[in-house]
């Protein structure tokens, strides 16, 4: 870890001193030893605050949409592999110029679930990391300007693990049972919109729920309004969601949002062979088409 932090700090220092970036966004120690938080560094002398470990759960790419952050111009961003895919998608969707970002990729060996860390869990194991880490294909970020290698060993995966196992379970259910399942989940929603705010790809300056002429999505925090919101959020992210899981982590009432996001990602891959956030030169899946696309459901 020490070696990693040194390299991270030196890279950041160099970037700031050479005026290649005006701001570094990275991780620093949080409110307790098992929590990390974001830090915004403009002074090269402050880089000692930077550090990285298995509790760096946040996706810092979320800040790229903030007007206050955009003002800084060129930004250096510390990202894990999964978060880096968000940067790629932002570039693909013309929300970010590749010239304006220096990607400091860190090799990540899995992030410990925050709710477990809050109870004192400190070890990276199959049972303590997020589901996304079990299926992770990007322990080393796909695209980076600087890479900080990890000196930690990869965690071991034993036996037949099934991340997001609930998806298959839901697929096998009858439509009524699925309806029951989601109704129960969406009932909990308090419409704080943290799922939207925590998402690096929800960058609309005015979200569809805030448009009221017409009012597409009902504002009530009851069954109907909650279901409509959760459905449209998932739809607007299908084919775009990069699976960082921030929506689910942020949700204060524990709605399993990744079950929807992951299902849609699988569907899009199955139908169109597209994986989001992989290639900055690829066209977004719904920004293009193929004459031979799936047509079976159309009369």
């Amino acid at each position: 870890m020490e070696k990693m932090n040194d390299k991270l700090q030196n890279t950041a220092k160099e970037l700031l001193e050479n005026k290649e970036v005006n701001l570094i966004i990275g991780f620093t120690k949080g409110s307790n030893p098992l929590r990390m938080r974001s830090v915004f560094i403009t002074d090269p002398n402050d880089v000692s605050k930077l550090s990285f470990n298995a509790h760096c759960v946040q996706d810092l790419a979320v800040f790229l949409k903030k007007p206050e952050v955009k003002k800084f111009g060129k930004i250096g961003l510390v990202v894990k592999g999964c978060d880096e895919k968000a940067v790629n998608t932002l570039i693909q969707e013309y929300q970010l110029s590749r010239d304006n970002i220096k990607i400091i990729g860190v090799e990540c060996r899995g992030a410990v679930k925050q709710n477990l860390a809050d109870k004192g869990e400190d070890s990276v194991k199959q049972s303590t990391v997020y589901d996304k880490c079990l299926v992770c294909e990007v322990h080393t970020p796909l695209l980076y300007d600087y890479l900080v290698e990890s000196d930690e060993p990869a965690f071991e995966i034993n036996g037949d693990i099934k991340p997001y196992a609930k998806i298959e379970e839901l697929d096998a259910m009858s439509v009524e049972d699925r309806n029951m399942f989601w109704q129960k989940e969406f009932e909990k929603c308090i419409k704080c919109y943290a799922c939207r705010q925590a998402c690096p790809l929800c960058y609309c300056t005015r979200c569809i729920v805030e448009k009221n002429t017409p009012q597409w999505i009902e504002t009530n925090i009851e069954e109907t309004g909650n279901a409509q919101w959760n459905m449209i959020r998932a739809y607007h992210l299908s084919g775009r969601c990069i699976g960082c899981g921030e929506c689910e982590r942020a949700c204060p009432v524990n709605i399993p949002l990744m079950l929807v996001n992951e299902k849609m990602a699988r569907d899009v891959f199955e139908k169109f062979g597209y994986k989001s956030g992989v290639d900055i030169n690829a066209k977004p899946v719904f920004g293009t088409f193929d004459a031979n696309d799936f047509n079976e459901f159309i009369k």
Partner: peptide, 10 residues
């Protein structure tokens, strides 16, 4: 700067 405006606090 690190606040994402999610409103969970409120």
């Amino acid at each position: 700067l690190s606040c994402i405006g999610c409103g969970i606090c409120t």
